[in-house]
Write a protein that binds this DNA or RNA. Structure first.
Length: 426
RNA sequence: GGAGAGGUGGCCGAGUGGUCGAAGGCGCACGCUUGGAAAGCGUGUAGGCGGUUUUCCCGUCUCGUGGGUUCGAAUCCCAUCCUCUCCUCCA
């Protein structure tokens, strides 16, 4: 959410920032709504002042036993009453209108975010690793998994519908191994605090991390009005909602392994086969809560940590800086990591590392008290996948496949797989 | 799920319709005291919004949250969330 005061004082800059998001007239509308509200509040407060003074006079008269004066004052103030009540109702309405409008405006992107329409305009920053060469035609992960008899889309479809999968045996263990490996890396090498989070959250939490109000269609909602998280960014970031912490508590670095649930509304027909796009998938997430001066460096550190996961798994990848058209609603800047998939013969997103500035902090009311000086400031929040586990399984299957349909277990995972070195085709 | 109790400032805690944004205590800050420290004494110590100005000040809203009653609500009513106790159920 944006600071209305800032919009008021920098309408041109704000309008320019929103135009990069393909929006126009936002500053004008926000200022209009704000002006209407403030003009109204000024008048309302005048009425409230009158009422309060009159009421105090009544109190005084009663206290001194002057009943006649009290009755006269009561008659006097009764006239104001209705006007105050009506005014309060209008104030609520005007405040809601302004807030509802602001909640639907996306974050301001950094200047270094390249202009562009969609993912084709993203800018590659670097590549790491060499895609493996095969002396046979590499298969896609679902063919490998199904041939192994350890990946079952049919069974999942019978009980849950499309976009679900059942993993068995070594692939089930691989999921668990990956989670442990990633969590160990983030906690031991990057000082993150491991957290187990709620998967079901209320609407306010989702407003905080900007899934709501705009993207409700992407969420699964329960019958009692809660939502399944689409990423544990939601739960991790909301750990600091409605708090004011001492500056010394920053940075807070969290990591969590959780399942994620997405309705995938609007992505019908895309990635319909395989595990790339599922309604339920698991992910190890990183979230950082930092001092505003530190968020720039933090994003680089987070990106480095996510890359380290791929490096240790021996997977080739590239990093792209998302262009304006591909940068998410709440982000000021996002780097995606795309892993090489031999079966698809292309790089596919496996991690996304975003910095949000104080955008989410305002929505959540998360602040810190500076050690020096007074007042409270909004924290900065960042989130990144480290990594999406389903897609990591996909990448391992495709990159480490052998001609006979077996899959080599990456060295770093062997100790997490009970010493297993090969997922063997039977 | 059933029955009951409760949510007040950084913390504890008083306040059941009238100058209450809120006694008292703790904590914290500053000052006095001291060779220094402790104790003691004094002063100060919530936030949001708006106005003015950005040193001072004024208004308004906020006693879990949202409504309502009333000239006036921390105090009364309704709804809701959360916490605790007992019962029930349960991995």
């Amino acid at each position: 959410m944006h600071d209305i005061k800032w919009i008021r004082e920098n309408p041109t800059a704000f309008e320019a920032a929103m135009s990069r998001r393909k929006l126009s007239g936002t500053a004008e509308k926000a200022i209009l709504l704000d002006k209407a509200r403030r003009d109204h509040v000024a008048g309302l407060q005048e009425l409230q002042t009158q009422r309060n003074e009159a009421s105090k006079a009544i109190g005084k008269a009663k206290a001194s036993g002057d009943e006649a004066a009290a009755q006269a004052a009561i008659a006097n103030v009764a006239k104001i009453k209705q006007a105050v009540q009506d005014g309060e109702e209008i104030e609520r309405k005007l405040t809601d209108e302004l807030n509802d409008f602001l909640l639907e405006l996306p974050n301001i992107m950094f200047d270094d975010v390249p202009d562009g329409a969609d993912e084709d305009d993203n800018v590659e920053t670097h590549r790491v690793g060499t895609p493996p060469k095969f002396d046979f035609e590499p298969k896609q992960h679902f063919d490998i998994g199904e041939a192994l008899g350890q990946m079952d889309f049919e069974a999942a479809a019978k009980m849950s519908g499309s976009r679900f999968v059942v993993l068995k045996k070594d692939l089930a263990q691989l999921e668990r191994a990956l989670a442990n490996f990633m969590l160990d890396l983030h906690t031991q090498d990057y000082g993150r605090e491991e957290v187990v989070v709620p998967l079901l959250v209320n609407a306010n939490a989702l407003i905080g991390t900007n899934q709501l109000p705009k993207f409700e269609a992407d969420m699964f909602k329960t019958t009692d009005g809660k939502y399944l998280i689409s990423t544990s960014e939601v739960s991790l970031t909301n750990l600091v909602r409605e708090t004011t912490m001492p500056e010394a508590d920053l940075p807070k670095r969290y990591t969590s392994y959780s399942n994620c649930f997405r309705s995938e509304a609007g992505s019908a027909g895309r990635d319909t086969r395989g595990m790339i796009r599922q309604h339920q998938f698991s992910k190890v997430e990183m979230v950082s809560i930092v001092h505003p001066d530190k968020s720039e460096a933090e994003q680089m550190l987070m990106l480095e940590a996510a890359e380290e996961v791929l490096k240790r798994l021996g997977l080739a990848y590239r990093v792209v800086k998302l262009c304006s058209g591909d940068t998410g609603f709440g982000a000021k800047r996002t780097f995606d990591i795309e892993v090489w998939l031999p079966g698809q013969n292309q790089y596919r997103e496996i991690s996304s590392v975003s910095t949000c500035g104080d955008f989410q902090a305002r929505r959540m009311n998360s602040r810190f008290k500076p050690t020096e000086g007074k007042g409270a400031q909004y924290v900065h929040t960042l989130n990144g996948s480290g990594l999406a586990i389903g897609r990591t399984i996909v990448a391992i299957l495709e990159n480490y496949q052998t001609k006979d349909g077996s899959v080599i277990v990456p060295e770093i995972l062997q100790s997490y797989m009970g010493g297993k070195t090969l997922i063997k085709a039977t």
